[in-house]
Design a protein around this nucleic acid. Structure first.
Length: 365
DNA sequence: GCCTATGATTTCTA
DNA sequence: TAGAAATCATAGGC
């Protein structure tokens, strides 16, 4: 626990004092100190708050230039750390004054009053915008990365997306085609880059947070910094880093989208269906020439028989209908061929059935 | 390289 | 939303 926190924790008994902080007489009564003493100290404090740093230094340290004190009051800029720790380099006069102030019996009480006032004013105003709800854009990106298999547990490099891409390319989703493995390899590469970058960001964030917290703790020796204030600073840092993370997530999503679209473009590299599949489709088409519109169930059945997708079956029938209609003469020969084939098949089935039903030859054929 | 066949996509319509 | 029609893009034969 730092000095400041210890001080705040140890000053529980001063609650009554801080309640009446707006009334100097009440403070005097409770502390039992001479009016002049309190008045002087308060006046000194008020004067210090109105003074610029340079003025204060010039007052305490008139014989030396304050240039070496460069830097801002912002703890995040690093310049402030030196101020609290550079005691060894300070002139004796300043050190004496500092020591006197630190050892003054009123210091803890006044310090705690200052802390409470600060907490009630600054933090109550600034604390309003804290506790933001989760950013919907981050949630959307997270969901997308999860669905694509980039974030979350490894699931074969986004197998669902890979299967979709492979299916669109005309291959079976499970055939382990070149496109499929290539897609998975590229996705794994994206995943790896994403995770390594994310790790770097997280590490940088925690390092920077620790650095800033150390600075604040250091500074809390010389100015009141409450734990809440440190918390607020940490949350600001986290917010900054999360916006960087969002950029990383966004560009990862874009990379996945580009990869996907590239694989979906491969669909135009069509392969002709194999002979057996074409025969199955043609058989159905010509045997249902009066109504060549297979139902969903029939499409699924045909898709299964031909080892293609239902939408490919739909495409095939769409193409076949329009091309047949446009040029019936050209397809007449093919139609006759399949009509004969269908008739022969039907005759065979019928013959087999009658043979099976015949008591003389129950097991023949 | 040209031509035809064919699977896929896009646009329009009922 | 399924299907028709037009179109695109590629395979494969010559």
């Amino acid at each position: 626990m730092d000095d400041q926190t210890r001080m705040l924790a140890g000053l529980g008994g001063l609650g009554g004092l801080t309640q009446d902080v707006g009334d100097p007489d009440s403070v005097r009564k409770q502390l039992g100190q001479p009016q002049q003493d309190i008045g002087d100290i308060l006046q000194q404090i008020m004067a210090i708050t109105d003074e610029s740093l340079d003025e204060a230094q010039a007052r305490c340290w008139p014989e030396e230039a304050p240039a070496q004190w460069g830097g801002t009051d912002d703890p995040t800029e690093g310049g402030g750390a030196g101020r609290g720790t550079a005691g060894g380099a300070l002139p004796l006069n300043f050190q004496h004054r500092k020591h006197a102030l630190n050892c003054h019996r009123m210091k803890p009480a006044l310090f705690s009053v200052l802390c409470e006032i600060k907490e009630k004013t600054v933090l109550s105003i600034r604390g309003v915008q804290e506790e933001d709800p989760p950013d919907p854009q981050i949630m959307r990106l997270d969901n997308m990365l999860l669905a694509e298999g980039v974030s979350g547990p490894e699931k074969g490099g986004g197998s669902a997306a890979a299967a979709a891409a492979a299916a669109a390319a005309g291959g079976s989703p499970n055939d382990g085609s070149i496109e499929h493995s290539d897609y998975r390899a590229k996705l794994a590469q994206i995943r790896q880059i994403y995770h390594s970058e994310l790790e770097k960001y997280e590490q940088a964030c925690s390092e920077f947070t620790n650095h800033v917290m150390n600075l604040l703790r250091e500074q809390s020796r010389t100015r009141p910094i409450s734990p809440k204030e440190i918390e607020r600073m940490v949350s600001i840092i986290h917010r900054k880093f999360s916006s960087i993370q969002m950029q990383l997530k966004q560009s990862t999503c874009e990379a996945v989208m580009i990869l996907r679209s590239r694989f979906l473009d491969a669909r135009r590299k069509r392969r002709n269906f194999n002979k057996q599949a074409t025969e199955v489709l043609n058989e159905y088409f010509y045997s249902h020439l009066s109504n060549p519109y297979p139902s969903e169930e029939a499409k699924e059945e045909l898709a299964k028989k031909c080892a293609i997708t239902v939408s490919q079956v739909s495409n095939w029938f769409g193409n076949k209908r329009i091309r047949y209609k446009k040029n019936i003469g050209k397809f007449q020969e093919e139609a006759n061929l399949y009509a004969v084939k269908t008739a022969v098949d039907a005759a065979n089935v019928s013959a087999q059935a009658s043979q099976a039903n015949s008591p003389a030859t129950p097991n023949s054929g």
